[in-house]
Design a protein around this nucleic acid. Structure first.
Lengths: 227, 227
DNA sequence: TGAATAGTGTCTTTCAGACAATATGCC
DNA sequence: GGCATATTGTCTGAAAGACACTATTCA
């Protein structure tokens, strides 16, 4: 099919929205801001920012993470590009989305002049979000599940040293169901992702736990799934 | 970190590039065009097109498939968005990429006024491609492998009726290694994706094969991998 | 009858999943 | 001693993977 006169090229702007996942109190949370401006004023939304000149979207995502969550050196990956024509009432704005996994300890939430304070919200109890951000968050959650199932990505949700029970909690909370302790330990240790340190927890009113660490704090993919 | 004066927003154009996978002669091929214009004149490139106004990138991908490959109703999915600042010498052009799986029988390659004829090229013998298209193709291949491993996506590479040996060939070619015939049949039939038809192949100098078809010619994901 | 591909079953090994008792540190 | 969490092994069932022979059509 040919056109004598082609429709004009789209003139788009690009935002980068980032789903920042954090584990707090045995709950999977995401960092959300409450919008202080129209459109969707007072609604919750993902932290994000417009793409600047001479900046890649990955750099924009890193900037958003630095500015709104106070972190760098966390696991960040591109998710998907959302570009429904009407997704933003302000005009043709395409969202290149990312997700990040942040250890709660590293998080330093920073307020911003044009947004209310970012806060952590339980992913399981979503209010309705601005724009198509509910769809983005749902997509991110799906991706997170398969990342955890097929890689050592959990390293980016935990502090450097952690107990096996904490690691197991990560999987239980994200996957949404309980796991057997003995089977979990057997399987996860066999993967070679983690090793025991010489440290143990202490000062608690029960038997101390051996602390483990990830051998490599960078993404290692698995041929077959974990759980 | 705050900025008194923010850098200007990026003014980007968007192309949609599509990796069209086809199986021909027991070989995995991709549809590529040879560029007749600068930049990268005479080099091979992925078929693609600029995003038009009031069009989503998924629609652009469908348009490219219709115009360059003569197909519709095939499996198409978004891959990734490539946006390195210098990836296109003409300026800031972001590529939202898709891949499509096309049965060879459906393919109707259409020449285009500003490109040489699109042709099929063996994915295993890549020449160097224009732009970052080699990277895109490599990424698409990775995705194709995991799609085949975790879904019934093969339906979109085969004709409506096919033999089990053809289906097995699809997996062998994409995965890059041979599979055991008995184990393949046992496993694949147990998935419930396909069913036998009453037809058989004929006119060949050997025993005829029962023809099978996919129960549902739409994407069905699997909890666990196939191979 | 020979060439070419279709079709079929068993055994072994590995892994996932169910399952419960003892150990240790602190109050 | 009591409480709270840590740590450890076995058994069973299911599925993956190795493996070889017979069946059918046509030239």
């Amino acid at each position: 099919m040919k056109y004598d006169v082609r429709p004009p090229l789209a003139d788009v702007q690009v935002t980068v929205d980032v789903v920042v996942f954090v584990l707090q109190n045995d709950t999977l949370k995401a960092l959300l801001i409450r919008r202080s401006q129209e459109p969707f004023r007072y609604k919750l939304a993902l932290p994000g920012g417009f793409l600047w000149e001479d900046e890649t979207t990955a750099e924009t995502a890193a900037r958003v993470l630095r500015d709104k969550a106070g972190v760098s050196e966390v696991l960040v990956e591109q998710l998907y590009t959302f570009d429904e024509v009407q997704r933003d009432p302000r005009g043709r704005i395409m969202a290149v989305t990312y997700y990040a996994l942040v250890p709660f300890e590293n998080l330093q939430i920073v307020a911003d002049e044009d947004t209310e304070d970012p806060k952590l919200y339980d992913v399981a109890k979503l209010e309705d979000l601005a724009f198509d951000h509910a769809k983005i968050l749902a997509y991110a959650l799906t991706r997170l599940r398969s990342k955890l199932a097929y890689s050592n990505a959990a390293y980016s949700l935990l502090p450097e040293h952690f107990r096996l029970s904490e690691l197991q909690r990560v999987y239980e909370v994200v996957m949404g169901h309980a796991l057997d302790k003995r089977n979990f330990r057997k399987k996860y240790l066999s993967l070679g992702f983690i090793e025991a340190t010489t440290e143990t927890s202490s000062g608690e009113r029960h038997r101390p736990a051996v602390l483990y660490r990830f051998v490599r704090r960078s993404l290692q993919e698995l041929p077959d799934g974990v759980f």
